[in-house]
């Protein structure tokens, strides 16, 4: 097997004295969509936060693109080619849509080039372009999620990490966001996402990891997990399933 774009080995992470991850392993290969599923509090967000440096690993290694990023400071992460869409579609509510995107391109110091990058994302999200001078706080939930995704794309990342991109959105926007994710894959980007909408996440993803209490529980192709009776019972049996596809 070729070397993984993102390789997580034996990841242990704690918040203060409370350990949350107990040796998680994960691989994400270039061009894949990989989903992380699991119940609330399983440690899904924590895996992501460890990758981007917001919750530094206590033990284990995280390698991205052949480079050890286990102890990398979070503000060095975007320059390496990783974009992050936080859980809860967090945007800078008191800043305009345009300024939010500009912050995603903070590392581009040249004003003209930064502006170009903003225009490129506007071309991809016409809806955001229409609202460019509105405050982000005045957007609908779905529009804010688009903005958070757009902001993560500003530096043209190889890997985009999304934490619960469809959480709390209306069905119309859930569809739209999932379409956007497919679009990102078509652009040649690699996606790692946490999703509570496990059925849809598994349908969409090439591979998936199910976490439980900070440990790997199931791993496999999205379709395989979707067909696995244990997975269906534990993760698709009612909780978080919003579409009819779970049967």
């Amino acid at each position: 097997m070729s070397q993984a774009l993102l390789d997580i080995r034996g990841l242990e992470t704690a918040y203060g004295a409370v350990q949350v991850l107990f040796g998680v392993d994960m691989e994400v290969h270039a061009g894949e969509i990989v989903a992380i599923i699991g119940p609330n509090g399983a440690g899904k967000s924590t895996v992501i936060k460890s990758v981007i440096g917001l919750a530094p690993a206590r033990a284990g290694t995280i390698t991205f693109n052949g480079r050890d990023i286990t102890r990398e400071a979070p503000h060095h992460i975007p320059a390496l080619g990783i974009g992050y869409v936080p859980q809860g579609r967090i945007v800078f509510a008191r800043m305009t849509v345009e300024d939010n995107l500009e912050m995603g391109a903070f590392l581009i110091k040249d004003n003209a080039k930064r502006r170009q990058a903003v225009e490129a994302v506007f071309a991809q999200f016409p809806r955001l372009h229409e609202r460019r001078s509105q405050l982000a706080g005045s957007l609908s939930g779905g529009e804010q999620q688009m903005l958070a995704i757009g902001r993560a794309l500003m530096l043209d990342p190889k890997l985009v990490i999304l934490d619960e991109p469809s959480l709390g959105l209306s069905p119309k926007y859930v569809d739209l966001i999932f379409e956007q994710l497919v679009g990102l894959k078509k652009q040649g980007r690699t996606l790692l996402m946490v999703e509570q909408n496990a059925a849809r996440a598994l349908e969409l993803s090439d591979r998936a990891y199910a976490l439980e209490l900070g440990r790997n529980r199931f791993t496999g192709k999205g379709a395989e997990l979707l067909a696995n009776p244990d997975v269906r019972r534990m993760y698709l049996g009612g909780y978080g399933v919003r579409t009819g596809s779970a049967g």
Binding site: I77, P86, F106
Partner: peptide, 22 residues
């Protein structure tokens, strides 16, 4: 750019960090 980064940090320091802002 820097001034906006100041405002971004005041709203969401973690998200600002992950935009590459020290």
């Amino acid at each position: 750019r820097l001034g906006k980064a100041v405002r971004a940090v005041s709203e969401h320091p973690h998200v600002a960090t992950i935009c590459g802002i020290d």
